[in-house]
Design a protein around this nucleic acid. Structure first.
Lengths: 189, 189
DNA sequence: TAAAGACTAGACCAGTTGGTCCAGTGATGC
DNA sequence: GCATCACTGGACCAACTGGTCTAGTCTTTA
């Protein structure tokens, strides 16, 4: 997911990518600032310069960054696809590979950051709009590939939901097989 | 889910149900012992008497208790059902009602406790066997209702996965509609 | 009645938490 | 040469963390 971030990236980027990685792996509350800053090689002062609200601010940014990465993967899968099902199949295979790359230890990149953030509305709302953005992005591919607007929205929503669930179980099981098998189970019924 | 636990339940049960509720709502790391003990009206000494390993021990127990509750709901839905699809439909409706009862603020009762527990293998393994137990339980109903062993296992796995994903998105969206609509989307394709 | 064990109560602790603050640093524009 | 700026480094802090310990109180036995 992240291209060996540490070396030369600007401070702000180093913070975001490191935060995304750690929050995804250990959760928001289980990741201490000290650990995060050490990993990112960034002093505390810089964090509060770039993200005045501190940890929660950084978490939002990391979530956005992760969502953007995810949409890029979507595009890679769907742009060359002849139809929605093919695109979905490629997407799930890509995600399975990503899952293996992360050594099955991470929570679903989409949702990891969004659920144990600082309690309260703003964070949950951010999760909502992020999911909607992802679903919408997927639906756009569906529409482009010939699905009607309603069908595209439906299929996109179902797929996002299924990926979400599959990733969770896959993580417990430490196997990406569920992700790989997903499209076949979803579509060829 | 829990029948207004506080009043008269024995200490140990009060601890478990309160822990299940708080961990589900706020996550493991975000729930402090102080908060938990206040809510359960239990002094610290009692916690370490009943659960010598402390918080993590309690979390395991809470996860098991939650899984048991969930299997009871499964039974309620599947025992009177004429076939697997009907059972699944009833189950999802029951879960939607539960979701609304919890005011949409809680994580999926199945997985909430299992993923941001104390890092390390034992907790993840516990999540794995718990998911397998749930899936197996569901598959047994499937087999009883006439599905072949393979089909039963497949359908059960898919359903658990889908519920998992649907609950997550539903939580972000604060609406149980996704859960209610799930069986139709999964089976009537 | 006595003794034993289950259980409770909460003071106490060392370590860590997220966050503040400000003196420095180095580049840029005038 | 100088002022301004975005940024860094890290000392410092109050609040809180999970966990330990022990004195005490019940309940159950004999």
């Amino acid at each position: 997911m992240q291209p060996m971030n540490l070396p030369d990236l600007p401070t702000r980027e180093r913070l975001i990518t490191t935060a995304a990685r750690l929050f995804r792996r250990n959760g928001y509350h289980a990741t201490g600032l000290a650990e995060l800053l050490t990993a990112a090689q960034v002093p505390k002062g810089s964090l509060y310069h770039h993200f005045p609200a501190g940890k929660s601010d950084l978490a939002m940014a990391a979530a956005d960054w992760t969502a953007a990465q995810f949409m890029r993967i979507m595009d890679d899968a769907f742009v060359p696809a002849p139809d929605f099902q093919q695109g979905a199949t490629t997407l799930c295979h890509k995600l399975a590979k990503l899952f293996d790359l992360l050594e099955a230890a991470d929570a679903c990149p989409i949702s990891a950051l969004l659920f144990d953030g600082p309690e309260g509305e703003p964070f949950r709302t951010h999760a909502d709009v992020t999911f909607r953005r992802l679903t919408g992005h997927l639906a756009a591919h569906g529409a482009r590939l010939g699905l009607g607007p309603q069908a595209a929205a439906d299929q996109a929503e179902l797929l996002v939901m299924a990926i979400q669930g599959a990733w969770t179980i896959a993580r417990a099981r430490r196997s990406s097989d569920l992700l790989r098998a997903l499209p076949a189970r979803l579509f060829l019924r």
